[in-house]
Computed example of a mutant assay.
Amino acid sequence: MEFYLSEGGIRAVLPYGELDISGNEEFGYRPFQLMMASVAGCSGSVFRKVLDKKRIEIDDMKISAEVERDAEQANKITAIHLHVVVKGVNLDPDQLEKSLEIARKNCSMVRTIEDSVKITERLEIISLSS
C-alpha cells in the first residue's frame, strides 16, 4: 500500500481504487470509520463464508455498527457494537449463533484489536415465509 498527501488528508492508492482519509469528512473517510468498516466488513464476510460452508441459505444480511470512544484518550475507540440482522426461511437460531461465534474466531480484524477494544455482537433473525 502507498499513501500520499492530499488536500485535507491522505490518499491511499489500492488495487481496487483510491481511498481518501481525513479527520474532516469533507475530504475523506475518517480513520475511526475505516476501523469500524474493517471490523464489520471482515466479520460479515467471514460469517457469510461460514454460512456457505454449512450450507445455510440466507436471503439478506445487514450489519449496523456503533462505536464508543474516549474523548480523554485522543478519542480512542473503546468499544464496537455490531448488530447483525439476518433474513431467511427456516433459519435455525442455534446454528446462526454458532456460525457467528466461528466467524468471530476467524475474523482477522476482530482478532487484531479484541484485546484493546471491546467488541460485541447481537444477532437478530427475521424469518420469511416460504
Rank of each mutant, 00 (worst) to 15 (best):
E68N: 06
M61H: 02
S64N: 08
V50F: 09
F47P: 03
I56E: 09
D52V: 15
R48V: 14
K62T: 14
R55D: 12
I63P: 02
I63L: 06
R48W: 13
A65N: 01
A40Y: 01
A65G: 07
V46W: 08
E68Y: 03
S45L: 15
D52E: 14
V50N: 09
E66C: 02
A65V: 09
G44C: 12
A65Y: 01
E66F: 05
D52C: 12
K54H: 13
K62I: 15
K62R: 11
G44W: 03
D52A: 15
R48A: 15
I63E: 06
K62S: 13
R55L: 11
D59G: 09
A40E: 05
D59N: 08
G41C: 10
G41T: 07
S38R: 02
S64I: 11
A40I: 04
V50E: 06
K53G: 01
D60V: 04
V50Y: 08
S64L: 12
D60K: 08
K49L: 11
V50G: 12
A65F: 01
K54R: 13
I63V: 12
A40H: 01
A40N: 02
E57V: 15
S64V: 13
S38N: 10
I63D: 09
L51G: 08
M61A: 05
V67S: 01
E57L: 14
G41W: 08
M61D: 02
F47C: 05
V46N: 12
V67G: 00
D60I: 04
R55Q: 14
I56D: 11
F47S: 04
I58H: 02
E57W: 10
K53L: 11
V67T: 01
K54S: 13
G41K: 06
C42I: 08
C42R: 02
K62G: 09
A40M: 05
D59I: 04
C42T: 10
V67P: 00
D59R: 07
V39W: 03
S43I: 14
V46P: 12
S64A: 10
V67N: 00
F47K: 01
M61L: 07
D60P: 01
A40S: 14
K49F: 09
M61F: 05
S45V: 15
V67D: 00
S45T: 15
S45D: 14
R48M: 13
S43W: 07
E57P: 03
E68D: 11
G44Q: 08
M61G: 01
A40W: 00
D59E: 07
V46Q: 09
A65H: 01
E66S: 04
D52I: 15
K53I: 08
G44A: 14
V67K: 00
D52Y: 11
S64Q: 09
L51E: 05
E66H: 04
E57M: 12
A65W: 00
M61T: 04
R48C: 14
I63Q: 02
